[in-house]
């Protein structure tokens, strides 16, 4: 109030004029999307300049205000763009599973589902539902036919998978990535520590975590037992030409027991890790679309992400480059 009284009329008018210019600029160019601090700091500068002297400064101050506002406009635009980019990154998807792999998986799980549905009723033949399920297939003849259709799908997939591993570059690459390494054991130990709260750091996985490797190799073990024993039982008359009856009994026992183990592992373990865990529930589409978002990749396969960035196969945004 003291200062105001001391101002000469000219100074007072110039200040008011510059103030209204600033207000107009903020309103028109920044659409008032600006914090009060920015406006206040410019007002203080106007005050300072006006006190220095009148006359020539008007145009200079106006230019300065214009430049400041321009800078601010750019700042706000960049901020917006950055936000948008970050938002976008969550939806940037890259291919995790090729069509080739997806088709193999689809045939495999279709076959396995058929096998489980037509096989378990034999193991639990005394249960009411077993009779019902066998009835759906039109009796034991129908269910046996379907069991063999499922088995054929499994055999085709396992033979094709060997071709895939040998003759496709992608197959060879994936296989190398799936080989068990010392790191998997270290990852496992760290994962348990992390689960128990002994460390805050989750192990960093590459293309395949130890969980996925376990699933992959469990299928090998399962395939060898199931297809091997299954073929002996399927062609039992041929088997018995060379093998004693007790070998068929062993095959039957192994087939039945491994079937239960595999079913439980798929329903409990594989479904939880792939689909039913809280981050993926109720369905993880990656195995169907083949796509994984960069966000998920950074979270679940950070080492693969880093490797792909290093190879230049994916573009991290500007900030990540710096």
């Amino acid at each position: 109030m003291e200062e105001k009284k001391d101002l000469v009329k000219e100074q007072y008018e110039l200040r008011n004029e510059l103030y209204s210019y600033l207000e107009q600029q903020v309103r028109e160019r920044l659409h008032e999307e600006v914090d009060e601090g920015f406006v206040e700091s410019l007002r203080q500068r106007i005050d300072g300049l006006v006190e220095e002297g009148v006359g020539e400064i008007r145009e200079r101050v106006r230019r300065e205000i214009h430049a400041e506002v321009t800078k601010k406009v750019g700042e706000i635009r960049r901020k917006k763009e950055k936000l948008e980019k970050e938002k976008k990154k969550e939806h940037v998807e890259v291919e995790r599973f090729s069509l080739n792999v997806r088709i193999q998986h689809a045939i495999l799980f279709t076959g396995v589902i058929i096998l489980i549905i037509t096989g378990l009723p034999l193991k639990f033949h005394e249960a009411r539902i077993s009779e019902f399920v066998i009835g759906l297939f039109g009796g034991i003849d129908g269910s046996r036919l379907w069991h063999r259709i499922g088995a054929t799908m499994l055999i085709i997939v396992s033979v094709y998978h060997m071709i895939y591993l040998l003759f496709f570059e992608e197959g060879r690459y994936n296989f190398l990535q799936l080989l068990p390494r010392w790191k998997d054991i270290k990852d496992f130990v760290q994962m348990i520590k992390y689960y128990l709260g002994l460390t805050a750091e989750r192990p960093k996985f590459g293309r395949f975590s130890y969980v996925e490797k376990f699933d992959y190799w469990a299928v090998y073990w399962g395939m060898v037992i199931m297809v091997g024993s299954g073929l002996l039982l399927w062609f039992e008359e041929i088997s018995l030409r060379v093998l004693p009856k007790y070998m068929i009994d062993i095959a039957k026992e192994a087939h039945s027991d491994e079937a239960l183990l595999a079913t439980l592992a798929i329903i409990i373990w594989h479904f939880y890790n792939a689909h039913f865990n809280p981050s993926k529930f109720p369905l993880n589409k990656t195995m169907f679309t083949g796509k994984i978002t960069l966000d998920e990749m950074m979270e679940e396969h950070p080492l693969e992400y880093e490797e792909l960035v290093r190879q230049g196969k994916i573009q991290p945004d500007a900030e990540d480059k710096q």
Partner: peptide, 11 residues
Amino acid sequence: HPNANLNYARG
């Protein structure tokens, strides 16, 4: 089981 042999009796 056509052509069954003695293997059927082993076990």
